[in-house]
Design a protein around this nucleic acid. Structure first.
Lengths: 213, 213
DNA sequence: CTGGAAGTTTCAGTCACTGTATCGAAAGGG
DNA sequence: CCCTTTCGATACAGTGACTGAAACTTCCAG
């Protein structure tokens, strides 16, 4: 599968649209920028934008397919005998670390934090995307474990993992918005993920929010 | 606070809109019915529909605020010393049982199952609503436990509970769509919820989807 | 009885998103 | 090297969810 001129141009168009959109959104706010304006600024038609991205929100989450593929790959190719939970932990924590170390990723993360904090529509979209990750992960686990349809464990594990991921991101973003320096918000997310995943592994029985008498 | 004629009329309008909407959606499909048609059939303006409901999807989930209030009340007023997990389990299981016993609720549930199965938009809305439940529940738990902002446990517990709830609903709906008789889909949801909540309490360490070697 | 609050209507509009027909450039086979 | 097919982008003309402002009606209070 060689990448011909056609594919190259297509990818470049897509990249240009996403980059333009992020720049405009960061500058004026997600809601204040119309898709038509993004299209115009990127030098394409509105229709072309929607040929590349399903929704306006997807313009912000243009990398999500790549993330999904890598997450699945990370879990799928884990050493034999290793629990999925541990593999997911390795993968996610590696990601958080990279975000904090790579300056470009850090800037991008900072932009994301601002955008997402200001837009309920984006938060909702993020949840939809995480739901899709969970679906894929659940399918992978169910296949691996030869789970019967009634077995809720793959589903629950996959969804719970995404909850921890989302919460870790939220903690990281909170740090970013407080102006936390670049070498601190990474460890913060890592710590959050570790705590969350430990809780998942150990269960809530020891906590379970007993009502104060 | 007496309920004057005005409030009565308003509630009646809202009820009529929701009922009309559900009837039309069930008859022709969610996407095939426009809000304008719902409004017309309910004898009001399109604008009035949007004064009562934030979005078209909310027409289907018109009872969600009541559910949220009752869930929170059920957890808030649990006996001193009881874990929140147990209180939520009691509440949810009671709900599933009622759904299966009450014929009117059963019919409504059947309609829901069909609608939700056919419409991704509705599933997405359901997730948003569950996210709101989780937010409220998390706030309640955090306040009860005097949790510090860094404590991820209230959040994780609340979100995980909603995952179990959603999965139990999914199992129930799957049963409904297979034409399962009215006295079986209730127990099925109850069993699903019990398994899910036991898993949450006990943790995934014993399962954790170890990779087959 | 009268002022005003609240629910509804009317109207005019914005904007995300879609379907269809079409164009032009780039594969690819003969 | 041409001819056909493929496919990404365009132009255009929508649909339909959702909004804001202003007027109109109905109910309640002082």
């Amino acid at each position: 599968m060689v990448e011909g001129v056609r594919e190259l141009k297509k990818r470049e168009t897509r990249r240009r649209i996403a980059e333009t959109a992020l720049r405009l959104f960061a500058g004026h706010g997600f809601d204040a920028v119309t898709v038509a304006e993004v299209a115009r600024a990127a030098g394409v038609t509105e229709k072309t934008v929607f040929n590349h991205f399903e929704t306006k929100e997807d313009l912000v989450y243009s990398e999500d397919r790549a993330f999904e593929a890598e997450l699945l790959e990370g879990v799928r190719t884990r050493p034999a005998g290793e629990p999925a939970l541990a593999a997911a932990e390795r993968f996610l924590i590696g990601r958080y670390r990279r975000l904090a170390i790579d300056p470009a990723s850090g800037d991008r993360a900072r932009m994301f934090a601002t955008l997402v904090a200001a837009s309920p529509a984006l938060r909702a979209r993020e949840r939809r995307i995480h739901a899709r990750y969970a679906d894929s992960l659940c399918a992978l686990l169910a296949a691996e474990q030869r789970a019967v349809p009634d077995d809720m464990r793959p589903r629950l594990l996959a969804e719970a993992l995404m909850v921890v991921h989302r919460e870790s991101l939220a903690m990281m973003r909170a740090g970013l918005l407080e102006g936390m320096p670049g070498d601190e918000f990474g460890p913060r997310a890592v710590a959050a993920a570790r705590r969350g995943l430990a809780l998942l592994a150990g269960g809530f029985a020891g906590y379970a929010a007993r009502r104060p008498g």
